[in-house]
Amino acid sequence: MSIEFHWGPAPDGIDTPYWDGLRAGELRLQRCAECRAWIWGPQWLCPHCHTFDPGWESVEPVGTVYSWSRSWYPFISELPVATPYVTVLVELPQAGDRRVLGILSEPEPAKVRVRIGDRVTGRFELDEGATWPLLRWTLAPEGTR
């Protein structure tokens, strides 16, 4: 059995505005125009008020580490990430505390000290040969976390 890795918009298009935002250097999440609830992951209707086709809004890619994990082997061979790497679940206060997953960009991932609550900032990076950019996170300087 082979698992096909998909990097970019889903075939049904539900998350295309997210990926288009990354290309434009923006983090875009869904927000219901009716009840103003933030939504992540992408949905066809608002899970709070059931309005169809929630909109998308840009959010500053700044948040705090909610959880993290250091990985010593690649989960997906198609994703060009050197091992080890640190995956972070980032809570976004400007988006109703929605949480997004990403890779922490640090020069020495095997040695980096990450703590729950550390402040992080997102960067949009297009790897060589890639069609779609990725959102990667960096830790705030030690004295400002």
Score class of each variant (00 low, 15 high):
residue 1 M to A: 14
residue 2 S to Q: 12
residue 3 I to T: 15
residue 4 E to D: 12
residue 6 H to E: 11
residue 8 G to Q: 08
residue 10 A to C: 01
residue 12 D to I: 10
residue 13 G to K: 03
residue 15 D to C: 08
residue 16 T to Q: 02
residue 17 P to V: 12
residue 21 G to A: 06
residue 22 L to S: 04
residue 22 L to E: 01
residue 22 L to R: 00
residue 22 L to F: 09
residue 23 R to Y: 07
residue 26 E to F: 04
residue 29 L to A: 01
residue 30 Q to W: 13
residue 34 E to L: 04
residue 35 C to I: 10
residue 37 A to D: 12
residue 37 A to K: 12
residue 39 I to K: 03
residue 40 W to C: 00
residue 44 W to G: 13
residue 48 H to S: 03
residue 49 C to S: 05
residue 49 C to M: 08
residue 49 C to E: 06
residue 50 H to W: 15
residue 53 D to G: 10
residue 55 G to H: 00
residue 58 S to H: 00
residue 58 S to V: 04
residue 58 S to E: 04
residue 59 V to M: 02
residue 59 V to S: 01
residue 61 P to Y: 05
residue 63 G to W: 08
residue 65 V to I: 15
residue 66 Y to S: 05
residue 69 S to H: 12
residue 69 S to A: 15
residue 70 R to C: 01
residue 70 R to S: 09
residue 76 I to W: 15
residue 77 S to L: 05
residue 78 E to F: 08
residue 78 E to P: 06
residue 80 P to K: 14
residue 84 P to N: 03
residue 84 P to I: 04
residue 86 V to D: 00
residue 88 V to D: 02
residue 90 V to Y: 03
residue 90 V to R: 00
residue 90 V to S: 07
residue 102 G to Q: 12
residue 102 G to W: 07
residue 102 G to P: 01
residue 105 S to M: 11
residue 105 S to D: 15
residue 105 S to F: 08
residue 109 P to V: 09
residue 109 P to G: 00
residue 111 K to G: 11
residue 111 K to E: 13
residue 112 V to I: 14
residue 112 V to N: 04
residue 114 V to L: 05
residue 119 R to I: 14
residue 119 R to D: 07
residue 120 V to K: 04
residue 122 G to H: 03
residue 122 G to M: 01
residue 126 L to V: 05
residue 130 A to V: 07
residue 130 A to G: 06
residue 132 W to I: 08
residue 134 L to R: 15
residue 135 L to F: 06
residue 140 A to I: 05
residue 140 A to W: 07
residue 141 P to K: 07
residue 141 P to C: 09
residue 142 E to K: 13
